[in-house]
Amino acid sequence: MTEPVDTTPSRWASGVTGIVFPVLVVLAIITAIWYAVCVPMNIHGAVQSAERAGVVVIPEDAKTRREMGGVALALQNTGEISDVWSQDRPRLPAPHQVAVELWKTTVLKKVTSKRSLIYHGWITLSATLLGFAFGTGLGILLAIGIVHSRVMDMSVMPWAIISQTIPIIALAPMIIVVLYSIGVQGIIPKAVISAYLSFFPVVVGMVKGLRSPDAMQLDLLRTYSASKAQGFWKLRLPASMPYLFTSLKIGIAASLVGAIVGELPTGAVSGLGARLLAGSYYGQTVQIWSALFAAAILAACLVAILGVIERVTLKRMGMA
């Protein structure tokens, strides 16, 4: 599998001044579209609650209203448009509603509270990190084996590549239930899912990285009469670092998805996935959106931390 478009921070660093403004503009456009889409999405609810409050709305029949498009209804009830951004259970919450909910459930709630997103985020994060550590560790070991053993390369590598085209996350509910039936529950089943989701990208990326030194460099080491171990520690491993970090970033994102999906079958107890599921059971859209954003922020932080480690490491190694 070819690797995705380069996301290394060098592109950021090279044109920070040239990039910040366009990014802000794009974000502003997205926010504006979001606010605008709230109108047709939420106008039905807004008109209904206005009618309940005694305001005359057009048309008066609720059934005709339900069949009308959102835009048409909004045009006939311009007075109610301002309410679409402050609905209790909107179909699409406005950005500030999500922000307020995020603020309320992170900063204003005690960390131990069952309603604190930090609490749920930590549940998910701990499973993600545990699984990620195991998955990448085993992945690197297997990659070393593959590079040094022709048999392993020829037998295992094709399967590792094929595994990337398979939605292996479909195994998640089964792993949870099977581990539960043999008495394992809590963080471990989710970590297992996270581990195998980050395992294969790391194997494939690391094999590519450990093979990246060209024949010339390998020959040079041979003229030094370097042993296999020396060749590994002094040439292959350092050369594989950029590949390792690229696959680590893919792996941690996959691990997080795995931990979130792993929380679904247990029936919404705790964790970000549970918040998503509970929100969809009870129609709490604001809660779903805030859990979604919490997951997004978590993913972004994890990838960003790896990016910083990557930059520092490569700089100290003289590669960036």
Binding site: P4, T7, K249, A253, L256, V257, I260, V261, L272, G273, L276, L277, G279, S280, T285, I288, W289, A291, L292, A295, A296, A299, A300, V303
Partner: peptide, 12 residues
């Protein structure tokens, strides 16, 4: 956005 857990939009 490509690095985010987008499957989370499923309930919405």
């Amino acid at each position: 956005v490509a690095a985010l857990p987008i499957v989370g939009t499923a309930p919405i």
